[in-house]
Design a protein around this nucleic acid. Structure first.
Lengths: 278, 278
DNA sequence: AGGTGTGAAATCTTTCACAGCT
DNA sequence: AGCTGTGAAAGATTTCACACCT
């Protein structure tokens, strides 16, 4: 086979990931309209390719904006908003530019307008029914989160395999059996499945959720799920988070051997010095 | 070539306080790791800077390798390991190359060796004492996680503000009061603090953890924490995760409009651009 | 002045593809 | 023949810096 890739954002190109699956997908471009990317003066801005990273930040901006609105704020500058979100203003403006131009030069953004636009972009104008699988400690916590973040994500189904739990209502929703996942999810039009089971059960549960028509999965189990192409998976992995922090602790200790912290590490290196922070 | 991490030069120093870490994906460069020390075998190539993204994946590789070791596996090829981790083999090899050359051409990697090297890189050869703040549903779940991911992250302190909880042992550790965070953390040499409190309390808790000498924070509260430079923060935000998934559901639906709709035709949710006042 | 919107440059990541060991 | 290790190309994201409105 000769090289057939490296297609610079050209026109005709099936945006396919070489192999059959790509669960990783942490950086895939967001839209995939082959040739028809035009979106001129459409009153309803067509969803262009918003970088995945920007989408994640939008959610943060949204929360901050909501808080500001609640406190009576009516306008914000990119400087203010970005500071509250912990990013720099250029990034904030760039992010917002992906969804349109809703600011006023010399003034800033209108809080309400921005909230509306971000909500629209994130698809928050519709409901996304959620199912939580695995009603252990974590599942309980999730189920009781009550409608999840603000409304928009009602928990409509719970599942577990423990006979003692079946039928018991948690947070107002009765627990069903794992075996019923496909049926119940289909019936209740679940669009997001949350997996909070032990790792061993995760893949099976995932398969059933998919069978039930669930399109998106939020996985708390420390397992890499295999899913069909059309299903979106996000992973929240406590162990990974802690280990990343561990890495930083270790790195820091190494860089600190002299009691001096440096921004740019010096190729001086040190052994695995065990330095305790003072 | 001057490639310093210099700050801006145009605008003077603003007060963009801490919180340099983004919401989701990370973007801060990772400092260089000093050369190996212990069992040498590190002739030349000094370990370069390990990309943050690679660090996160290492943790995943590690888990898979451990599972393989448990099942008696002794060697793996990049192809096998990468498939199990859900990435492609080139990425896996590149990631591993950041920590050294521990594979054997024509053969693969020795599971045990890789485990050891990754653990060393992630700083898992030392203990990282953890404190969990906020013993609600989530905090309970975390506290009971028991030593967290395979030992190495012992939970040594718990905090809450509820008088009824103070003194009560959860998962073997008695709950202390929020006010005692600085003292207790310092005493017990806590290096990682986990915040599982309501958003309103998060920043205060964070400040106390920092006062207690905690260097890394895993934040479950939907708040952007402001921290001094030397403190590392990772955020796990359920709302953000769900909203990202929501975005994908919406996008998918949009792209399918001219083709065939296949998903949730939610009755009575047909609006766009209009803010739901619910 | 004051602040947005955005090409263009700088950076960071991923992927290619093949030299080089075993 | 098989598989790792890696320079180099391709992509994606972030940052700069400035034209351009109010």
């Amino acid at each position: 086979m000769v090289a057939q890739r490296g297609r610079r954002n050209g026109a005709a190109a099936h945006k396919r990931t070489g192999s059959r699956r790509g669960p990783d997908a942490d950086n895939a471009p967001t839209a995939e309209l082959p040739a028809v990317t035009e979106n001129g003066a459409d009153p309803e801005a067509r969803v262009k390719a918003i970088p995945e990273a920007a989408v994640a930040r939008m959610a943060v901006y949204l929360r901050i904006l909501s808080a500001m609105a609640e406190q009576g704020g009516t306008t914000v500058s990119s400087e203010e908003l970005s500071a509250a979100a912990g990013v720099n203003s250029a990034k904030l403006r760039k992010d917002l530019s992906y969804i349109g131009s809703y600011g006023t030069r010399g003034v800033g953004y209108e809080v309400q307008v921005l909230i509306g636009q971000i909500e629209r972009t994130l698809g928050l104008t519709r409901q996304h029914r959620v199912a939580v699988v695995g009603i252990g400690n974590l599942g309980h916590a999730l189920a009781n989160y009550g409608g999840f973040p603000g409304r928009g994500f009602p928990v409509e189904a719970l599942f577990d395999i423990d006979p003692d739990l079946i039928g018991v209502p948690v947070g107002g929703v009765p627990v069903s059996h794992l075996d019923d996942i496909p049926v119940v999810c289909a019936e209740r039009q679940i669009s997001i499945g949350v997996i909070a089971t032990p790792p061993a059960a995760a893949q099976t549960v995932c398969d059933r959720l998919v069978a039930g028509g669930v399109q998106c999965i939020l996985n708390f189990a420390p397992v890499v799920l295999q899913v069909p192409e059309h299903v979106e998976v996000r992973k929240v992995d406590l162990a990974v988070e802690l280990q990343i922090l561990s890495f930083h602790v270790a790195r820091r200790a190494d860089n600190k051997v002299n009691g001096q912290v440096v921004e740019d590490p010096i190729p001086g290196a040190a052994d695995e010095g065990v330095v305790m922070p003072s």
